[in-house]
Amino acid sequence: MTRPRVDWRYAAPVVIALIALSAWQFLVSWYDVPVYIVPSPLVVARALVTDRVLLVHSLGVTLGIALSALAVSVVLGTAAALLFVQSRWIEMSLFPYAVLLQVTPIVAIAPLIIIWVHDTRVALVLCAVVVAIFPVISNTTLGLRSVDPGLLDLFRLHRASRWQVLWRLRVPSALPYFFGGLRIASGLALIGAVVAEFVAGTGGQGAGLAYQILLAGIQLNIPRLFAALILITVCGVALFGAVVLISRLALARWHESELGPR
């Protein structure tokens, strides 16, 4: 109790990363690999520092698109799920189109969206929404339907209105499923934003990280390419972590998925 113990759940991955980075640094120096093929970790770190203004600005653009897309996906996806559970007919009529949205590759429809929507930022958000919305719709719909049949009978016996059943029973029952969908959607929103930027190729003030990667590749500025890549990855992990945290705060009290060890 007196000495703080090392928590290996966090320490082990860090140790692995340090070993991998050292090996990377060593191999690049040893074989004298040119920087335009594989830059060493130190060179990448230097690029991160020197290009920080450019990269952080681009990170802001990409993150802004991903977060907007995630927000829109949550609002529209939840609304669609609430609509679907109102009647089997609505669900049967509309659900195939949600699937259609999901299975169409985003790279194939992104050019169309960018042509049709005048404002590039809106077009990019829309592309990311197309990618991110499906898990929200399907998980929330499943959750709204996964209600304890006994509780449903109980509500019926007490003459509960449709609204009471929805608000007091279906919505709380759906929360764990909704958060499961949100975890997947958070990653997809970022992927959607990056893919859409690649297709749109927006430069100037609106240049996101994808554009920096594209440009750095053309200019053979590989250290900057790596730096941008690292920022996207860190960003995705942070987004996922934030969603996990929110879901833990919302469910920890009662749902088995978030209960700690006893």
């Binding site: 304890d148 009978d153 109980l154 003459r159 709380p172």
Partner: peptide, 21 residues
């Protein structure tokens, strides 16, 4: 069910409580 004036209660095989409440 909508027009009943008598109160009926049902206890199920499982406790059937709302886990979040």
């Amino acid at each position: 069910i909508e027009q009943r004036d008598r109160k009926l209660e049902f206890v199920f095989q499982s406790p059937t409580l709302m886990p979040w409440a």
